[in-house]
Design a protein around this nucleic acid. Structure first.
Ligand SMILES: [Zn+2]
Ligand SMILES: [Zn+2]
Ligand SMILES: [Zn+2]
Ligand SMILES: [Zn+2]
Ligand SMILES: [Zn+2]
Ligand SMILES: [Zn+2]
Length: 726
DNA sequence: GAGTTTGAAACT
DNA sequence: CAGTTTCAAACTC
């Protein structure tokens, strides 16, 4: 499978020169006069302050998206940084016979912002979608233009769209200023302010009357992308262009990793993304299969391994530099097609230095000497933006202030070329401690293996697989939906065991989980831990599944796109891409996809009797109740937890012991216990107040709560009954 | 848990 | 594209 992608020699460990080479390259990249273009996707938590970087992405349009659009969404809390450093200006890589980078195409205006949608509350999708350049536009059926790549994932991510105009770089779409807040900075060097004006504004939620401007979104970045298709990412800046070709994207669940081949010119393009990965296949055969399908579902919540190859050649013939020896199966960029059964790394001609930082366990550091540098990139993805990293990686990168020597970097280290402040130092991204810690935990569970970094887990959805692949998904417990307390996440959805991404199991019986009726399938995931019967949505039925996917796409090319476009955090900008058609639920029940996504209906909804609009009294009432309930639950839970813990370690002094040796009742009522009880009562009172409960009823509620607290105390006390034992 | 309701997806 | 059927989830009791 994935191993085939890697050059044979690259896997060899022990070449001491490689590290040096890598470092040299990095040094040159960082130190050179090169212009850095930084495209950063970073969670707000990261204090990255991008400066004048510009990201230019040229690309492509897939069938559904005519305009070249690049969308990037970031996920909160994810540490995703996409950066491109271009040192040599003039290079333009061409794909096929046409220069990809050239902005000669008329500026497409484009529309707008695309919002990657999240499939559901709490799920975010961060995607980088690159569509092919119009000039290169070709039928998808032609394998050649495989340029559509979507990286998706991450819930509540923002999406930015950049299009290229006639000027070198134009930033076409920016979402409203929230980029900064999210740590995403996209600033075109030469952007003309006016460009922004052309952007289509996204209309806010519809008013009750449903009047509003609708965004014309051409395509919405979706979770699904033709996944493992080779794609190209091109970043162009004043000084140069970087082209990256995605050769392979494999996915397991959770993380997307791209391996980037750095051109000799020292240009580096790094793209990270996280998102749902379409369960591709675990073995090479499967991979091939997925490659063949015109569109693969790109992952969503799974790990996606993407290998990017940055072509530096200025020549138009991208393919020429394929290094057979290194990459037996290399395919020329131009000819790369989705149909190619064997995903290969495509490299531009020219001697490229290839260094591989194996993701694999520690032992291997750098291996081959080929000219390409493979840098495992960890991507955060998933609803929460999980960071997936190579298992053994990175411990010590964090020392801030220093730019780690490349040679010193552990295998699997993520290297970002960015200049942002914060934890990113000199082009290196520092992984938050929490991730590292998690990583380490996984490492312990992991078996050191020499597997190729891109190895696919047999079962993408199965947690344990990741370990064998060398990548460890970093699972964070702090799963957070976009919704804040005001918009509680649907907690019931989380079904999976701790450490696993929350996912609701399906219960399909007649669809074989190969129709969009099945949420798993619709989300581009394999069924895992589901309750379905006769399920074909698994690796054992890959061919059927592939057919089904194809079928769905034929029916609706956007079938696997997120239904909910994502805007800023919160629901403000989120909108159902198709709108609902509710007739009887008033759009205030989960039957309604808008309501289910915690968003209001918009003008594109065709619902009847809709009550799901901003000013709707019914909606407000519901929200109110929901919030109150949530608050109450939280408070009570917290209070009880505290109460219990307090009781557990009640100070038992001799004086509180009866002659029998038992603690006397009063000894259980410590100040802490009393305080906790008061909290419970206050919470109850607040809730009553919130719900406009009558005074009388409020009193009753509070008294009942008091009763419950007393019971709690008594129960706790009874547990500690018996002779006092310190 | 069984049965009903609902609206998206699939089908015609 | 509209009308109907199918489907699995949401909801009710
Ligand atoms: Zn299913
Ligand atoms: Zn399932
Ligand atoms: Zn299933
Ligand atoms: Zn609705
Ligand atoms: Zn709606
Ligand atoms: Zn509605």
């Amino acid at each position: 499978m994935m191993e085939t992608i890697e050059p044979p020699s690259s896997s060899i460990a022990g070449d001491g020169d490689v590290a040096a080479d890598i470092q040299a390259e990095l040094d040159s990249l960082l130190a050179s006069t090169a212009v850095e273009k930084t495209f950063m996707l970073a969670p707000s938590t990261m204090s990255i302050t991008p400066t004048k970087s510009v990201v230019t992405v040229t690309t492509v349009s897939d069938a559904s998206t005519p305009e070249p659009v690049v969308s990037v969404a970031n996920i909160p809390k994810s540490n995703v940084v996409v950066s491109t450093v271009v040192s040599s200006p003039q290079k333009i890589v061409s794909v096929g016979d046409k220069p990809v980078v050239v902005p000669t195409t008329p500026p497409r205006t484009i529309a707008g912002i695309k919002r990657p949608a999240s499939t559901g509350p709490g799920q975010y999708v961060t995607k980088v979608i690159i569509t092919k350049n119009p000039t290169l536009n070709r039928p998808i059926s032609n394998a050649v233009t495989m340029t559509t790549v979507s990286l998706t994932h991450v819930p509540s991510s923002m999406v930015q769209t950049i299009t290229q105009g006639s000027s070198p770089v134009k930033l076409v779409t920016m979402s409203r200023g929230n980029l900064q807040s999210k740590g995403i900075v996209l600033s075109p060097l030469k952007q003309s302010p006016g460009m922004l004006g052309n952007k289509i504004a996204i209309s806010p939620l519809k008013s009750p009357s449903k009047v509003g401007t609708q965004p014309i979104s051409i395509s919405t970045p979706k979770k699904i992308a033709p996944a493992p298709m080779p794609g190209q990412l091109i970043a162009q800046g004043p000084s140069g262009v970087v082209k990256a070709t995605f050769l392979t994207m494999s996915t397991t669940s959770g993380v997307s990793t791209m391996t980037i081949a750095k051109p000799l010119g020292s240009q580096v393009a790094t793209v990270m993304s996280g998102g749902k990965a379409v369960p591709v296949s675990s073995n090479s055969n499967k991979i091939q299969t997925s490659m063949q399908s015109v569109q693969q579902i790109f992952p969503g919540r799974k790990f996606t391994y993407v290998r990017l190859v940055g072509a530096t050649n200025t020549t138009n013939t991208p393919s020429k530099t394929i290094a057979p020896a290194m990459m037996p199966k290399a395919i020329q960029p131009a000819t790369v097609s989705m149909t190619s059964s064997q995903p290969q790394l495509i490299q531009s001609a020219g001697p490229l230095k290839m260094a591989t930082l194996p993701i694999a366990p520690a032992q291997s550091v750098v291996t081959a000497k080929p000219t390409t540098t493979h840098i495992p990139v960890s991507v955060s993805s998933g609803p929460q933006g999980r960071l997936l990293m190579p298992a053994n990686a990175m411990p010590s990168l964090r020392s801030a202030g220093q730019s780690p020597n490349v040679a010193q970097l552990p295998a699997g280290t993520t290297v970002f070329a960015t200049t942002g402040p914060g934890n990113i130092v000199q082009g290196y991204a520092v992984v938050p401690a929490q991730f590292v810690a998690q990583l380490q935990q996984h490492q312990q569970q992991q078996q050191p293996t020499q597997q190729h970094p891109t190895a696919q887990p047999a079962a993408p959805n199965q947690p344990n697989v990741s370990g064998s692949s060398g990548y460890v998904p970093i699972v964070t417990n702090n799963y957070q939906a976009t919704s804040t307390s005001r918009h509680p996440v649907n907690g019931s959805v989380q079904v999976e065991a701790p450490g696993t991404r929350p996912r609701k199991p399906c219960n399909c019986t007649k669809s074989q989980c190969l129709k969009l009726y099945c949420d798993c399938f619709a989300n581009g995931e394999f069924c895992s831990n589901c309750n379905c019967t006769n399920c074909f949505n698994n690796l054992e039925h890959e061919s059927e599944r592939a057919k089904a996917i194809k079928s769905c796409l034929e029916r609706n090319p956007l079938a696997f796109h997120p239904k909910i476009g994502k805007g800023k955090e919160g629901q403000a900008d989120r909108r159902h891409n198709k709108g609902c058609n509710c007739k009887r639920s008033g759009c205030l029940k989960n039957y309604c996809e808008c309501y289910e996504a915690k968003i209001m209906c918009s003008s594109i909804c065709k619902c009847v009797g809709c009550k799901n609009f901003e000013e709707s009294p019914d909606r407000k009432t519901l929200m109110h109740l929901a919030d109150a309930a949530e608050v109450r639950v939280q408070q009570q839970t917290a209070a009880k937890t505290k109460l219990s813990s307090q009781i557990q370690d009640l100070p038992s002094k001799p004086s509180i012991l009866a002659n029998t040796g038992e603690r006397l009742p009063f000894s259980f009522i410590t100040s802490d216990v009393a305080e906790a009880t008061c909290h419970c009562l206050l919470a109850q009172a607040e809730e009553a107040e919130r719900t406009n409960t009558s005074h009388r009823e409020a009193e009753q509620m509070i008294l009942e709560e008091f009763g419950r607290c007393l019971l709690e105390i008594i129960n706790s006390a009874s547990k500690t009954k018996g002779p006092y034992q310190p």
